[in-house]
């Protein structure tokens, strides 16, 4: 299977690989997927107290190139967004941007789930009610 140039680019030059301090109240962490399924994504956001905007985002992903690219792209998109804007990122936008083939759509779903999980973790830490999300259909 040939990968799109954008997937290859993110794979070769992944953006925002790393770890944020998960003990900080300003950091939200989302860990999704499972080793037996062949992909695990950890996505973290750090929210600026003053502006309420995401000032940093990091990821680490165990998975195929499309999963790595999806998480790399997600961290790029998250920076500068508020947490309410962040949860509006739709997996299909990732599919379109990266030209993912149908068998790789689950990678984008995983990225969307990771964003939501990170936002909820942040909300929980900061005394906000956790958002309820619909179960993902593609898994």
């Amino acid at each position: 299977m040939a990968y799109s140039d954008k997937v290859l680019d993110h794979y070769n030059n992944p953006q925002n690989v790393g770890t944020l301090d998960k003990s900080k109240s300003t950091v939200g962490t989302g860990l999704v997927g499972a080793p037996e399924c062949g992909d695990v994504m950890r996505l973290q956001i750090e929210v600026d107290d003053a502006t309420g905007l995401i000032k940093d985002a990091k990821f680490k992903t165990f998975g195929c190139g499309s999963a790595i690219a999806s998480s790399s792209l997600a961290t790029e998109w998250l920076k500068g967004k508020s947490i309410d804007e962040a949860i509006k990122i739709d997996n299909m936008e990732i599919v379109e941007e990266l030209n993912l083939p149908p068998v790789k759509i689950h990678c984008s779903v995983l990225a969307e789930d990771a964003i939501k999980a990170a936002v909820n973790d942040y909300r929980k830490k900061n005394g906000l009610e956790e958002m309820k999300f619909e179960e993902s259909l593609v898994h």
């Binding site: 992944p14 690989v17 770890t19 860990l31 999704v32 997927g33 499972a34 080793p35 037996e36 399924c37 695990v40 994504m41 950890r42 680490k60 992903t61 165990f62 790595i68 898994h139």
Partner: peptide, 24 residues
């Protein structure tokens, strides 16, 4: 491995099997 959350957990001594992975 530098990009893998599982590798990081392994290095921190976290047993990956002890984590409740979401059904996927």
């Amino acid at each position: 491995r530098e990009m893998s959350p599982l590798w990081e957990m392994y290095k921190e001594g976290i047993d990956i099997n002890s984590i409740e992975w979401a059904a996927h």
